[in-house]
Design a protein around this nucleic acid. Structure first.
Lengths: 253, 253
DNA sequence: CGATCGTTTGAGTTTGATCAAATGTGGTGG
DNA sequence: CCACCACATTTGATCAAACTCAAACGATCG
């Protein structure tokens, strides 16, 4: 019954445990599941903002395009992520959100949100926490694009996505699905697709990571994190979080 | 009496007008003015989070450093900006904030914040709006560093800073103080200081912008905005906001 | 009056971009 | 089932934007 919001709950519980009635309230707040095709926009820049969307299945991305077509992907949204918890304060969207593969999303109305926030302070705090984590990720992406080499960038992104997906139960062993083309990786990391390709091959040759058929396999977590200079603090999984080679083991336990 | 929060109020009123009692409540919420030397940290990564700081005078920046010393500046904080409206939800800071020049900041305690938020919903909305704008700026910076050339990056940053400073009354004619070294510009735009220098000279030669003694002078707003591909929508100054050569005039009127 | 920090200039190098073409893959419809 | 199409990946060759290193020059300050 709370199945539809299971991933969101799982993510929020990285911050604080939730009670049964809170989980049920969350499940009741969502409605109107909609499907989007790959490449379809869930939200378009310049449009007025409507209710909040919760990603149930599939991946999406925030992005902006310049006049001449250059595109920058600004964030990935994975199952359990909410599109825009508070944008109803802004008149129009300042960026777009597109599906990276077939996506299923549920709407949460403003009324339902307000009601939730009034009745469940702990839930409210958990939702706020998740938006703060998103902001923190955005900041880290500036560092990634700004300061790191192509190899480091890719390694860092893989570390991050693996950890985020692990947090919502979307990894198994050292693998996860990551439905991204090399072109999309390029637009994310501010590299050319050609260079992404060469860098991926270098990683494969070094037996760090392989990325084929939208499957990411991390062969050597420690080496990858070192290569990336990855420090998971910015993901703010409270409780514990040392370097994470044993991450999957711990999470599965 | 509300003088201390004048810039904050001025900024917030770009979103919605505020009543006298709201302004007074805001003024009463701040306390304990502290001074910071240039380069001093206001907040340090890894530290537990304390109350909110309001920048009264001077500029500060959010930044992160990598192990090997590479530094990325992630945001600028100008007079009227609040350091961290909601970070008390996070255990530790994931980045640092440093003064770029001598800074004066006032503290706002969590209690005062909570009290304010309970009593003045419109003020609360205005403060939320300002955090959403900050997020939006962070996203635009990813685009800036990721997709734009050195020339475009610098031009874009200058457009943005001029507009933000204009919004808090810190411009006169086509000038504003911008207390940044070329090294800091480099760390912001992910360029080398040498390249920033050459690009600045190119701008000067093209009679677009001059930047000397921490004074930014924009000689040709229209040309600069075109060169930058600048679209001010992401700053979310509601009401109006066309291209902004006449910006200062309008704001002064 | 050094000392420190920032800016400017020059020369050579590197990372990653661009262009072009070949190869692979998945889906569609005849 | 095959032919075809669109799209993604791979490879090679060339190019350019921006970096690094090094040194000189200019401020500012105690």
């Amino acid at each position: 019954m709370t199945a539809i919001v299971a991933r969101l709950i799982r993510k929020l519980e990285n911050f604080t445990p939730l009670a049964e009635d809170e989980k049920r309230a969350l499940a009741n707040a969502v409605s109107a599941v909609r499907r989007f095709a790959a490449r379809e926009d869930l939200v378009r820049e310049g449009e007025p903002t409507d209710g909040i969307k919760l990603i149930l299945e599939g991946f999406a991305c925030r992005y902006k395009v310049l006049q001449d077509g250059r595109r920058q992907i600004i964030a990935y949204l994975v199952p359990g992520d909410l599109c825009d918890v508070r944008v109803f304060l802004l008149k129009r969207m300042d960026h777009s959100i597109a599906a990276l593969c077939p996506v299923e999303a549920a709407m949460v109305s403003h009324e339902a949100t307000n009601d939730l926030m009034e009745r469940f302070p702990r839930l409210t705090r958990a939702l706020w926490w998740s938006t703060l984590v998103e902001e923190s990720i955005t900041r880290e992406w500036i560092v990634n694009v700004g300061q790191r080499s192509a190899f480091e960038r890719l390694a860092h992104l893989f570390c991050e996505m693996f950890m985020r997906l692990d947090a919502v139960g979307l990894t198994h062993d050292d693998q996860c699905e990551l439905p991204l083309t090399q072109i999309e990786l390029a637009d994310t990391l501010a590299l050319s697709a050609v260079h992404v390709n060469r860098t991926l091959m270098e990683m494969r040759r070094g037996r760090l990571v392989s990325f084929h058929n939208r499957q990411l396999v991390i062969h050597d977590h420690v080496a990858l994190q070192i290569a990336a200079g990855f420090n998971p603090n910015y993901l703010h999984f409270e409780g514990e979080s040392p370097l994470a080679p044993e991450l999957t083991e711990r999470t599965r336990a």
